[in-house]
Write a protein that binds this DNA or RNA. Structure first.
Lengths: 228, 228
DNA sequence: TTACTTCACGTTAAATTGACGCAATCAAAT
DNA sequence: ATTTGATTGCGTCAATTTAACGTGAAGTAA
């Protein structure tokens, strides 16, 4: 019996939407390609699946070797299968998105890229391949996910203030949320634990520092905000 | 330059969770395999992706040729990539689920299967491969989806009563929902349009027949029921 | 001390939900 | 013809949740 992988099969790749949050801005990490196709174009980081790898492993490998990142939140998005999505041939891409705290990593362009840069998600350049579509799906997923699942803290420092969490939500959802109602929701849901410490060195009143509540029953909370 | 598909790549398959609703029961279509592996075991219908096909096309082809179904609701679920999920070699499966009205189709076992049968989703036999996992993810997706997106009608006849829709929701969510509150929600959301006709031949009061409102702003409604 | 800003905690009206009540409608039994 | 028993369609109301906003405390800078 002929083994399956001796037939011709499409290639398999993962494409990564790496979100970072810094200075009140949600950003995405893009590579400037050194080689055709889409030479000198901005694209999502990605790479091919090796025969023995899982997708998650491929993602980690890419994050590690191309971007020097480790131990980050990763979630599968969707599989993109347009036969013409890659001019080199049939490549099926499985999209993943990652949430990282840019303060924890220093990104460097690997050998495949001219440049690696953070781009504000509202000011993206033209992307190669079908990466615009993958990005949009990732952003949409993130927007819905933070409303019913505590992932926001993945983008922040270990200790954060309610105001910082509030600003993160406003930034991701691209809307305004009442400060006081937000605080109440987050505290009622036991999303966070008060550490008793305060953030020092600010111009005004020093806010309390919280950490994420790891014991949180994850589907116990829901923030009702119209995703517009 | 070597073309990508001349490298060895994992095989790609789709596996289908076909939901049907009949006699107040949510069912799933399973095949009894004629050949190894998992000979004489029940599995989800599935098949390999041809080089030029999209996943959706593969799904349609399988539904058409193996099950005689056409023009059904299909949605991608997730990609399953455990290297050992198929004893024949590396096969990556993209899960899809379908919603069909069993009254519209007569399923027949194709050449690959000993038998094709509907199984109550609460009384499934042991499944081959990782199909239990794929099924569970599909059921979970369906349960959350019907709360914020109008897909329930895909499982019903073109004309249906509110009570029938209500029973469908209770069956899928596996819980009880207050009849009168459910009615109000569905009507307020403009989920359905009253046709003025009534279902005749019943023992008691003849209920009004509705059809799905195709003009519905799809994210305009939300049924709040604890998915437990 | 005063001015100014942010933080933490309340308050209140409006909207929504959950739990029922009840009359109208139908077929079958009396 | 009337009663019985079930389902359907519409309504009520208390309890809960949400949205919008007030205010004093805590901090820095003038």
């Amino acid at each position: 019996m002929k083994r399956f992988h001796e037939y011709k099969n499409p290639s398999l790749a993962v494409d990564l939407v790496v979100f970072g949050y810094h200075n009140n801005t949600l950003s995405v990490l893009l590579l400037n390609r050194k080689e055709a196709p889409f030479r000198d174009c901005w694209t999502l980081p990605g790479g091919f699946l090796q025969m023995e790898e899982t997708f998650l492993y491929t993602c980690s490998r890419i994050l590690q070797t191309k971007l020097g990142m480790d131990g980050v939140f990763l979630e599968q998005l969707y599989s993109f299968d347009d036969p013409d999505r890659d001019p080199r041939g049939r490549v099926i891409a499985v999209g993943y998105y990652a949430l990282i705290n840019p303060a924890k990593f220093q990104v460097v362009a690997g050998s495949m890229a001219n440049d690696v840069k953070w781009f504000n998600v509202r000011k993206l350049p033209v992307l190669g391949f079908d990466h615009k579509q993958i990005f949009q799906q990732a952003l949409q997923r993130l927007k819905s996910k933070i409303l019913y699942y505590p992932v926001g803290f993945e983008l922040l420092d270990d200790l954060f203030t309610i105001t910082e969490l509030h600003e993160l939500y406003e930034c991701i959802l691209h809307t305004t949320i009442d400060r006081r109602n937000f605080r109440r929701k987050i505290l009622d849901a036991e999303y966070v634990i008060n550490t008793g410490m305060k953030r020092e060195g600010l111009k005004n009143r020093h806010p309390e520092l919280y950490k994420f509540n790891k014991q949180l029953k994850k589907n116990n909370f829901q923030i009702n905000i119209s995703t517009e």
